[in-house]
Amino acid sequence: MTLHGRLLELNWSRRTLLLASGTLGVTLSNVDRVRAQEAKPTVTIGSKDFTEQILINEMVALLLEDAGYPVERKLNLGTSAIVHQALVSGEIDAYVEYTGTGLTAILGLPVESDPQAVYDTVTAAYEEQFGLTWLEPLGFNNTYALAMRQEQADELGIATISDLQAQANNLRFGGTQEFLTRPDGLPGLQETYDLEFAEERGMDPGIMYQALDEEQVDVISAFATDGRIPGLGLVTLEDDLGFFPPYFAAPVVREELLSEDPAIADVLNQLAGAIDDQTMANLNLQVDEGGQEPRDVARAFLDELATGGVGPATPEATPASE
């Protein structure tokens, strides 16, 4: 056996031990696993650079490993455009993307608000332009949302993005560098709502929330499924003009890989509809505030999913916004 094979085997005997002590009833023996694996293609999984992406793509990686595929992880690669580029060039084979991001940031198409229409559009266009297949949506919609501190929003009487218009020139905006340039980000938002902020600051996705909490900015481009919104007492503003498209998450896979091994689609579609907004927010919070490792959170969730024990919300987590 090659060294690589030996390493895989070592890896797998450890995993089998873990599995045996866990709740998943896996019956394949160690030897069967290694054998099954040798026949299956290696799948490289990527992700963008924020918690939810790392978490959800870790789930994809773990599911494939559980099904006996050798997996290479290239998580935390960067922004949407970067990960998409990696997928098109074949550097990675799959990652979870959001329909609205595919529609506007990748394809450069105008915003649409009907979730099914957006899904159909991106599915067809990705197929045609890139040879990429969108699998079934996972269930949650991680839309962009503008968030403010609850007290300040109340004080200024701001509940919708339209309410911002009159006061934006006194408010400081913070967002990811990606949001500051995306067509479905600040440029489009400013045009739709006629906004001009006093200051616009770009920063890493992770630190926006703290910047808002510590009053270093007043409005941020939050992710709707970020558990820190309720956690820090933030409020999201209603997108009353319907600017943001829906952003339902779904795995995008290279067609080549799927035609080589169509069973991969079935493996990943186990996640179809399995995660709602609330669940995703709770999972994110376990990493962002609970300090847990994405892989551990993903593992625990998959184990629960396998035993049918996935409830709406785990008791220790804070409920997500409305």
Binding site: G78, A81, I82, Q177, T181, R182, G202
Partner: peptide, 11 residues
């Protein structure tokens, strides 16, 4: 800012 925004959009 411009470098990171360009990187973000691969522009």
């Amino acid at each position: 800012d411009l470098i990171l925004q360009g990187l973000a959009m691969l522009d």
